[in-house]
Design a protein around this nucleic acid. Sequence first.
RNA 1: GUGGGUGUAGCUCAAUGGUAGAGCACUGGUCUGUGGCUCCAGUGGUUGAGGGUUCGAUUCCCUUCACUCACCCCA
Length: 419
Amino acid sequence: MEKLKALKGFKDLLPGESERWDAVASLVRNTFHAFGFSPVRTPVLERTTLFTRSIGETTDIVEKEMYTFEDWDGKAVTLRPEGTASVVRAYLEHRLGLHPLPVKLYYQGPMFRHERPQAGRLRQFHQVGAEIIGEIDPKQDVELLSLLSHFFEQTGISGLTLEINSLGCPLCRPPYRKTLQDYFQVRLGTLCEDCGRRFNSNPLRILDCKKATCKTVTQEAPASADHLCPECETHFKAVQEGLNVLKLPYSLSKHLVRGLDYYTKTAFEMTTTQLGAQNAVAAGGRFDGLVEALGGPATPAIGFAMGMERIMQLLPESQHELPKLRLFMAPLGEVAGQHLFPVLYALRQQGICCEMGKPSAALKRQMKQADRLEAAFVLIAGEEEMAAEQVILRNMRTKAQLHLPLSNLVEGISAQIAP
RNA sequence: GUGGGUGUAGCUCAAUGGUAGAGCACUGGUCUGUGGCUCCAGUGGUUGAGGGUUCGAUUCCCUUCACUCACCCCA
């Protein structure tokens, strides 16, 4: 029989690692809440058109990476490859724009792209994202970046760089794109094969080609930040000033581009050098045209997404610590076992993490089990103790033992072992 | 989709053209009601799968699959 196993690019999260994910999730909750963001959860399955209209028909994601299939009613549906489109869809569907603007939302959950797995890249991966919808003010850009920066500070991850750029808007991007194509037109011979393709499909992409030969060509290429319309230029300047006021470190990256079509103006990435080729830990930008493109009123917005798997790889070891077992109860014989069983339940109801051994097992064996589970305390209830209406409570670290009466046992235990 | 690397016990890895071993882990004993340490023993592998060469293949060759890294793309 064929061995059953998880699909390529899909991973199980086992005890040990799961707790670390929970810890990061709760850090997300606290941090994002402090910055005024509310959580949303949207379905993982959406109509395919949501993504083709938002991400862009000709992007690689839409063309060859989406898990798309026909639903029972014959309609094309897709496992979401990213989160922003769904959030905007929900924003429009539930008329969240009727709330005071801007609306600030965040989400976390699995995304799906059929790519070849490699370091920091899976087919089911997890993102945490935040969006500010309904406000064009560059202060929103700065607020969002301050959240990003503060969050990573809280994680203890070091060695991150915030890079920013401006991609322009529908007014200044087309002429810039033309300028760029003119520049590359006469240099096509020196570009790599991939860049030859990009020249027509997405000339901006040539700017972040990794090949050395292309890099020498792109070095002198015109930068979008130098070809902005007055509005975009003012906006970009204001963002930089805002970052300076908050003393947030960043660097201007003239050749930073985005993979999804909906981005405008401010674009940014949080990168690391410790993760191999997949060096972006978080990325995002302004998407002032997306809400309208999905059928809503013209509404400016900005957001980012962070890759959970990449964050987990960078998280310092100190964050791995697991909660330990507080109490292990070792009954010797059925009488003790039956007496302790309700006590076990009562202690757990108080939120105390405890386990109980098998009454038929020898004390030595139960002690060993308690040790393996890293129990802080062990409760020993043998025949002698039961006859004397008491139990022994042993502190495993100090080896100190004391007797507790059977009456009011739950209270007696919790008073002794409270952390 | 393209290219490179690697597949031996649950984990980390040895070894040899003559049908496999260690450490860790696990189970038990040493220790008749008190854990960690020591020592001893035990469980555990059709050497990823299929085919070929050979008297004989885990080792050499081919194919395939899986994992992995990189390209592409992207968080």
